[in-house]
Computed example of a mutant assay.
Amino acid sequence: MTIFGIDISNNNGPDVDLAEVAREGFQFVFAKVTEGDGFIDYTWPAYRDAAHANGLLVAGYHYLRDDCDVDAQAELYLAHLGDAAIMVDFEADSGGIETFWAFVNAVRARGRAVSLSYIPRWYWQRIGSPDLSRVPGLIQSSYVSGSGSASALYPGDDSRFWDGFGGKTIDLLQFTDAAVVAGHRVDANAFTGTLDQLRALLGTAPTTQGVLMALTDEQQTDLYSKVLEIWAQLRGPDGQGWPQLGRNAQGESLTLVDAVAHLLEVPVAGQADPGKVAS
């Protein structure tokens, strides 16, 4: 299947109605957060929150520039991103591929990870066609002509626009800058997969860690201590069984389960016949 999303920024104004975007069938939004080491997109916080409120996957992007310090750019970007996936906009005035990787590493050094990389084919060619095989989540842009609904403009899953480059397959395709969505002309993107697959690419798939992170430090400590207590009660100290419950034919202390099985005279796999268990 193929799902669609939009790409917006202050250039589209602050009034793109993301509730209407969702009603029209779009499932994700990429929006600008920062550029260089000083520009902050004033539309970002409201678009991020509206995307979450309307069930849209959201990534916020930083427009990378090579005329200012990479660490300062990472600091600015992460200070304003909030709870959204990380995307790098790497194109005109972004420098060579070494600048891209310097920014990726600066983000990693701050405990986050880049999920998406907007690198249009024309810019890749301009900077010498470097290897892109390790680039996370490649977004390529090639535009069809005309304006209208995104589904009508989409060139199809078998379009040459999807051809990979730099040793990397394309993960998302930005195929127009003139899709009419919620009454606005915007960039539209396609993803040939399910919403869950896109969620995994963005690094926003639900995990057990995410559930635990919803607990306070005190609650996590309390939960951990209780799990250890339950484990010890079932398996005995250090998992070696309880001497007071008896021993098996190999001289090993019984666990609680072993002892109950012995009382019920039910053989336990890997254990001698209960009648031969010494008290």
Rank of each mutant, 00 (worst) to 15 (best):
A152K: 12
A152G: 10
A152P: 11
L153K: 12
L153Y: 12
L153W: 11
Y154T: 09
Y154C: 08
Y154D: 02
G156I: 08
G156A: 13
D157I: 11
D157R: 13
D157P: 08
D157E: 14
D157N: 14
D157Y: 00
D157H: 00
D158Y: 00
S159D: 04
S159P: 01
R160H: 12
R160M: 07
R160G: 14
R160D: 14
R160N: 13
F161H: 12
F161L: 07
F161W: 00
F161V: 01
W162Y: 07
D163I: 00
D163P: 10
D163Y: 11
G164E: 02
G164P: 03
G164H: 05
G164Y: 04
G164W: 01
G164V: 08
F165I: 13
G166Q: 04
G166S: 09
G166A: 11
G166W: 02
G166R: 02
G166F: 04
G167F: 04
G167S: 06
G167L: 03
T169N: 14
T169Q: 14
I170C: 07
I170P: 04
I170D: 04
D171N: 12
L172Y: 00
L172M: 15
L172T: 14
L173S: 05
L173V: 06
Q174K: 12
Q174S: 10
Q174G: 08
Q174Y: 04
Q174H: 08
F175T: 09
F175I: 07
F175N: 06
T176P: 05
T176V: 06
D177F: 07
D177T: 08
D177P: 11
D177E: 14
A178P: 00
A178N: 13
A178Q: 12
A179D: 05
A179K: 03
A179M: 06
A179C: 15
V180D: 11
V181L: 03
V181A: 02
